[in-house]
Every structure is written in structure tokens, then in C-alpha cells.
């Protein structure tokens, strides 16, 4: 092992003074130190993007972003699963593109309609253990989430006095059809409080007829206020800012405790909002792409329908 005693070595950083090292068997000069201890064992997303775009790389160019589509303002609420995972470390443009491609292909085969939390839907799933190999469930959508191919929604219904909830993955190939029987929104993002409400609020007949919604109209908002059962509850509803629930009629101590635990500053937290959402430009460019693909898919489907109609004749 070479000794570095009393040698004046050039430092990795630009300095006004030169550094000296003591004679130490285990010392490593800092010019090697930085290289031998990399800060992370993975690349940053922007580094990978640079390499993909560089002229030295044979990476195919991504198709140019679309700007010609006339996308309605609330389009991103109809297709929220196309928006990427806001967690920056996990993002990758190629993976997102390929995932979206799979989603477009699935949507070309099966019609996944527009729905919101509070809409009543009927889902038919292929079930190998049922006699007609199908299983149909009707329920109100109490939650919707997931990003990309992991998108899911939960339907709730009360059947024979028993409350039942089923979680469906939107891009699962066993899903045969999704039909929206009643398209409407509720005042809350999630309706988990229906578990603590009387069963009438969650009961929907299986043979319910679909209620058609005229094209181009705004989605109706159901501002009904649900009256909850008396306590005990599954969650502390008084601590959540629920709009669709009637006055809980609790003792003051509950509201005091809720106020103590509340985080009223969160609605002003810009960084939190920034971290949980994708930025506007990216969101718009993705929605442009989604809108274009939807338009093309609709044209294809209508062509197929007219062909079938002609054949029948």
C-alpha cells in the first residue's frame, strides 16, 4: 500500500488551499473517494430521459405531443386513471406510454363508461364456478382509484339484508361488461360512510333499469344528506369533512377532539398538492392523447356496428 505521507495532492474540489494527508494506511485520496462512493445506485429519471433523447442513442423518438384536440375541461375527471402516479421517483415516460397503450387496447374491446363515485353500476364478470359462467353484480360506486392498469372501483349493495362490497379492477380481462345504470356524482369523494348508514341508502335492485342521460348534459350531482346510524361507527366520521352526511348529533366533546386533531392548514399546503398531482402541462398533453384515441376508437366502433347492421339486413 502506497503511503500518502506528507504528499500534497490535488483535491477533487477547486480550492484556494491545497490539502495534505496524514500517513494513514486506510486513507484514500479524495479524488478517488468521490468516484468510489457514488451517491446513489440508480439513475435519476431526467438522466434516463436525456439519454433517450440524445442523438447518440438509437432510441426511437416518442410521437410528438398532440395539441390539436378540443378537450373538454372536465375530461381528466372522466379518465383519472390515465394520469401518472405523482410520485416522482417511480415515473418513467416509456413505462407510462406502454401502460397507456395497453389501456387503450382494452378500451377498444370493452366499453368502460364514464362513472363517478355515487353512480349505480352493473358489472358482469366471467365466473368459472357459476352455471352460466357469468356473475352480475349491481351496486353504488363508493370508491374509485388506482393508476394505470391497477385502476379499481368498489361497488356496494345490500342483498337480502346483507351489505356486500366488491372491488373490481377496471382492466381485468375477466370483466365482461360495465354498465352505468344511473350516472350521478355525490358531494363526497368516497362513500365509505354508507357502511354506518341505514341499509336503505345502499340498496339497489338488481333488475334496475338504466336511466339514460342525454348526451352533452352535465353530470347531475346528488346532494342528498345521509343520516348515519347511532354510534359505534367503523370510522370517526366527525373528524372527516363529510358533505353528504346529516348533522351527526354528537356530544360537544367529540367535536372538540376533532378540532384538536384537525389539520386546517393542509388546504393551504401548496407543496402537498404539488406532490399529489401531476403538473398541468403534462396532464393536458396526456388528456389530448386520450381524447384523440377515444375519438378514433369511437369511429372504429361505429363502423363495426354499421357493418354488423348491414350484415343482418
Amino acid at each position: 500500500m502506497a503511503s500518502y505521507s506528507r504528499r500534497i495532492l490535488p483535491c477533487f474540489w477547486k480550492t484556494t488551499k491545497l490539502l495534505t494527508f496524514e500517513d494513514s494506511a486506510r486513507r484514500v485520496p479524495c479524488r478517488y473517494h468521490q468516484e468510489l462512493l457514488p451517491t446513489r445506485n440508480y439513475l435519476l429519471p431526467e438522466t434516463v430521459e436525456e439519454h433517450r433523447k440524445s442523438e447518440l442513442s438509437k432510441h426511437p423518438e416518442l410521437p410528438p405531443s398532440i395539441t390539436s384536440e378540443n378537450v373538454p375541461a372536465d375530461f381528466r375527471f372522466v379518465y383519472p386513471e390515465f394520469l401518472p402516479d405523482p410520485q416522482y421517483d417511480r415515473r418513467d415516460s416509456i413505462r407510462e406510454r406502454l401502460e397507456r397503450e395497453d389501456m387503450y387496447r382494452r378500451r377498444a374491446v370493452i366499453d368502460i363508461p364514464e362513472f363517478y363515485v355515487g353512480s349505480i353500476m352493473a358489472v358482469t364478470v366471467s365466473d368459472q364456478y357459476s352455471p352460466n359462467k357469468e356473475n352480475r353484480f349491481v351496486g353504488i360506486c363508493i370508491d374509485r382509484g388506482g393508476v394505470g392498469l391497477r385502476a379499481f372501483f368498489i361497488l356496494r349493495n345490500v342483498v337480502d339484508g346483507q351489505g356486500i362490497e366488491i372491488m373490481y379492477e377496471m382492466y381485468n380481462p375477466t370483466l365482461q361488461s360495465i354498465q352505468v345504470l344511473k350516472l350521478e356524482k355525490r358531494v363526497d369523494d368516497k362513500l365509505y360512510y354508507l357502511r354506518d348508514a341505514p341499509q336503505e341508502y345502499s340498496t339497489f335492485p338488481f333488475d334496475m333499469d338504466p336511466i339514460p342521460v342525454p348526451k352533452g348534459s352535465t353530470v347531475p350531482v346528488n346532494k342528498m344528506k345521509v343520516q348515519l346510524n347511532p354510534r359505534p361507527w367503523l370510522e370517526r366520521w366527525e373528524r372527516q369533512d363529510l358533505q353528504g352526511v346529516e348533522d351527526l348529533k354528537l356530544e360537544q366533546r367529540f367535536y372538540d377532539k376533532a378540532a384538536k386533531v384537525a389539520k386546517p392548514w393542509e388546504k393551504y399546503d401548496l407543496m402537498k398538492w404539488y406532490r399529489e398531482n401531476t403538473n398541468e402541462e403534462e396532464r393536458d398533453s396526456i388528456m389530448q392523447e386520450v381524447h384523440q384515441r377515444k375519438r378514433l376508437t369511437d369511429i372504429e366502433k361505429s363502423k363495426r356496428k354499421t357493418k354488423l347492421a348491414e350484415r343482418k339486413r
Binding site: 364478470v125 365466473d127 346483507q162 351489505g163 356486500i164 366488491i166 372491488m167 373490481y168 381485468n172 375477466t174
Partner: peptide, 18 residues
């Protein structure tokens, strides 16, 4: 024949443990 626990996709979850 029925649990309150969160289930995998396509499997129903009940309000009571039956």
C-alpha cells in the same frame, strides 16, 4: 361464508362475518 376483511378483486366482502 363471508368476511369483513378486504378481499382480492372480484371477491365479495360482507358487512358481517358470517
Amino acid at each position: 361464508v363471508g368476511v369483513k376483511q378486504n378481499q382480492k378483486p372480484n371477491m365479495p366482502k360482507f358487512d358481517t362475518n358470517n
